[in-house]
Design a protein around this nucleic acid. Structure first.
Lengths: 343, 343
DNA sequence: CTGAAAGCGCTAACAC
DNA sequence: GTGTTAGCGCTTTCAG
């Protein structure tokens, strides 16, 4: 290849090659009204022959970049790829492309930087997955660029939301475990410091659903607050297992947390589900792995993603669409980490 | 918030507010030579007061976007986030931001689309992780934008590479197993159809390393070709276990493959490592999980990523830097899926 | 239905 | 050391 890149093919080259004006080329590119079939065909051919590709930067200066930004909180959580699949699938036959922010789960600050970077880069729309930003910040972002927020309960006039019914999800787990005969069912939650987020974050809602369900069964809630990470699950389980009257079942707020729990249980010389039952949340790919086979709550990540993408496209098409909230129902996938408690 | 976004603050606003020219503002933004400390301070203050953020689109039209694109083959493989961490860490204190392509592991076609989308969006540099594109394609991409390729063996004059020494990695596993007393050590590889890729893809190199190491120990190689997926591991193990004289150890070419192997072994009513030892490759997060505890080869993903980012920055600074190849040494992490063979 | 031309926000010559 | 200005490639009025 030549050492210095050859000049990019531009719309002008295409116009000249097709013997039409740049306006016509632009119209063809955007499927806009006002180009004759003949002109359209000539342009298509010129584009193919020259291998023309529109510059997103130039387009961005006039408004659209045909790019959707997705901000994930933590690439390691295997639940998020599911959402992403739903998004890309829904966007497949459109002119839009998806770009991901590296998330990095390094807190609000990092999340804000990534979001800003995406705005600076002219994203046509943003999908924020379980963001930790405060409401005011979300409203501000949504005021700048069409936004769909996944996983935050609570309504907004400026952005759409897609959430899983975490109250129901938590209840499914408690019902399942109680149905197996457990009464000492503990829950490991992600510790929430911010009181404003308390009402919106999925982790908080799950804990709330757990409490409600335990009460409904006449059982006493037992919550350990750590974080939605493997380490958090490990630490939480250590605490629970050290109790004199330890629980017979642990409901981890996320599969990744359950992984840490399983590890702590194994280290304690206990067996699952013989000595203790463990359930997760998210039904991630590794929940299904043979040697793990974790009972979990399935959130239908693909559908979450595909709904979010759909809402976003609507909002991009018309920014004044009234905001929508979609709530999806989870299902329980019982596998082999849950069983009746030991006698 | 106002329903329609307020006009963005531009460099002109900053210049007016700071009582300087746009040139000066631009220079300050780029830390370029030729702005007095006084002017610099005034501009900094104006930027802060107005909340100015440069438009990447406009910058893109003049060359730089301060954006690095990373193309991952499969977001689900927990090895890749490690690489990403290394990249972002190395880029932390620069003006660059990282954006990820959604990969989608849907083959060469999808990979090409993502790469093209990134080029169209004016990425300043690209990091391609274990791409499946043919050499000609990689050369072409690298001819357009500075590129670093991770995981492909084989040199190129136009792009830099960072690879793990897969020959050594495979040898470590064979040495370990042979040292435990195994002699019937089988390997499950990812079947490679393309002869051109055969010499470059990590899977092929691992198989080659396995063969060499077996020969060195005076043992006979026994390879099953499936794919680097859980299903591939499951199928491969099924074949191996059906043999009359079945292997006492299986070296899976990737951790995800080992997961399938463990499942097949469990289904066959055999125990690990009592009846059969299993080793993986990549030392992914789930290899360390308590209930799995898989012996695996650690590739030092962070360092791979950080080296790739460094090379890329060098290449962006000077496109005519001679290309570099960095090879990192893997280490073996022995866990509880490997033990001496049954008597 | 088509074309000419203005201008999006920024950078980099070039003049002062 | 600082300011003026010409584009980068595209979209979008506005005339024809």
């Amino acid at each position: 290849m030549s050492p210095s890149a050859p000049r990019r093919v531009t719309i002008v080259d295409v116009a000249r090659h097709a013997q039409v004006s740049t306006t016509t080329v632009s119209k063809v590119l955007r499927n806009a009204y006002g180009a004759s079939p003949t002109a359209r065909a000539k342009v298509q051919q010129a584009i193919a022959e020259l291998g023309y590709r529109p510059s997103a930067a130039a387009r961005g200066m006039r408004g659209q970049t045909y790019t959707i930004g997705v901000v994930l909180p933590d690439i390691r959580n295997p639940f998020f790829p599911e959402i992403l699949d739903g998004v890309t699938e829904r966007l497949r036959d459109t002119d839009y492309h998806v770009l991901l922010g590296p998330g990095g789960c390094e807190g609000e600050q990092a999340e804000a930087e990534v979001t800003d970077a995406m705005i600076d880069r002219g994203m046509d729309g943003l999908i924020l997955v379980a963001p930790m930003a405060p409401r005011s910040r979300l409203d501000k972002v949504a005021g700048i660029v069409p936004t769909v927020v996944i996983g935050r309960h609570g309504h907004s006039a400026v952005y759409d939301t897609v959430v899983d019914d975490d109250i129901t999800g938590a209840r499914l787990v408690v019902d399942h475990l109680a149905g197996l005969g457990h009464s000492r069912i503990a829950h490991i939650e992600h510790h929430e410091t911010d009181s404003a987020r308390l009402a919106e974050m999925p982790n908080a809602i799950r804990a709330q659903g757990y409490r409600q369900a335990m009460r409904a069964h006449g059982l006493e809630a037992d919550i350990v607050s750590t974080s939605y990470t493997q380490q958090g699950g490990y630490d939480g389980a250590k605490q629970l297992l050290a109790r004199t009257n330890r629980p017979t079942a642990i409901f981890a707020g996320a599969d990744i947390v359950a992984m840490g729990v399983l590890q702590a249980v194994a280290e304690a010389g206990l067996t699952v589900p013989g000595d203790i039952s463990v359930a997760g949340y998210d039904n991630t790919t590794f929940a299904a792995l043979g040697p793990i086979s974790l009972t979990s709550v399935d959130q239908a990540g693909r559908q979450i993603g595909s709904n979010a993408a759909r809402l976003l496209l609507d909002r991009i098409a018309d920014r004044h669409t009234p905001s929508a909230q979609i709530k999806l129902s989870p299902t329980l996938i019982a596998r082999s980490t849950t069983a009746p408690p030991p006698q």
